[in-house]
């Protein structure tokens, strides 16, 4: 008996010794992972502060609403901000219905089969096309072949192609999150499949879908490379600057930020750039906050749960 106890004691001691070293490694690794995650967040905080520091001085009513200047200092970015929103809305008008329909089809109607596979693969491929390449496609097809010229519409259609896959995914995930019991209940009450989807399934998916749409809107708002050779790098002149004609050239704020730095002749490039970058950043932050708040509100209102 005494021997058995002794054996067990040495083994315990050995285990305890090795455990001490292993625990140290565990602590070290845990600490490192925490540090890395915190680093990312701090970096973001640093960026935001830095952008405010750089850009706050540029922001004025005149800057936000005034017309840009080609040669002299003191221009504003009013038409660019307008164009950013205008192209965003045009893009959403095309993206949302198509992505919604395709998402519903893949999630609710066609769970298997070659057609589904092909659509899914096409979507994944579209999602991976670099935005500059998509821009050149827009240039070839919409600007040149269809003769729309550099225009808000050419830009919007190009952005539609770029963002359809993401929104379709959002739709699919939102639908996948709706409990199967909702569908069964509606079908069991004699609803057709379409009635079931429209009345029982979609209302529960609206919350997460809205969050997704708003987040993607942020991305559309800031997209640049795909717009340079589709929507163009200038705004319509004079009183026509705030212009709803979809066939007029429509430089957005993000494009303006790039273009002023790379090509423009104005002396106050830095002022315009810092201000534009800050406006873009603030818009992204707003889109993120809105996405959260609105998505949660809608979910609560339409499904009665938090």
């Amino acid at each position: 008996m005494a021997q058995a106890v002794a054996v067990s004691e040495t083994r315990e001691r050995k285990a305890a010794n090795s455990a001490r070293g292993r625990r140290a490694v565990d602590r070290l690794a845990t600490g490192a992972l925490w540090a890395m995650a915190l680093f990312v967040v701090l970096l973001l905080a640093l960026f935001v502060c830095y952008m405010f520091y750089l850009g706050a001085g540029s922001i004025s009513w005149h800057f936000l609403t005034g017309l840009p200047s080609e040669l002299t200092a003191g221009g504003g970015v009013g038409p660019e901000i307008f164009n950013s929103f205008y192209i965003l809305i045009l893009t959403l008008l095309m993206t949302v219905p198509i992505a919604l329909a395709a998402g519903i089809f893949l999630q609710e109607y066609s769970r298997t089969g070659l057609f589904r596979e092909t659509v899914q693969f096409s979507a994944e491929s579209l999602a991976t096309v670099p935005s500059i390449v998509m821009g050149l496609f827009g240039l070839l097809v919409f600007v040149q072949t269809l003769r729309w010229g550099f225009s808000a519409l050419a830009g919007a259609v190009t952005l539609t192609l770029l963002n359809l896959p993401a929104l379709m995914r959002v739709t699919q995930e939102a639908l996948a999150g709706v409990p199967a019991t909702y569908r069964e209940a509606s079908m069991a009450l004699g609803g057709t499949k379409w009635q079931t989807i429209v009345r029982a399934v979609l209302p529960s998916a609206v919350g997460p879908m809205t969050t997704g749409i708003v987040l993607i809107s942020g991305r559309i708002f800031g997209e640049t490379a795909a717009l340079i050779y589709t929507a163009g790098t200038s705004v319509a002149h004079g009183n026509g600057a705030y212009d709803f004609n979809p066939f007029h050239t429509a430089e957005t704020l993000a494009v303006h930020l790039w273009y002023t730095h790379s090509e423009a002749l104005i002396p106050d490039v830095d002022r315009i750039g810092n201000g534009s970058a800050l406006v873009l950043l603030v818009m992204v932050l707003i889109f993120n906050v809105v996405a959260r708040v609105v998505g949660r509100q809608l979910t609560v209102r339409l499904t009665g749960k938090g």
Partner: peptide, 11 residues
Amino acid sequence: VGIPSVVYGWL
């Protein structure tokens, strides 16, 4: 994710 690439470039 949301920060536009041109803003990253500007930074």
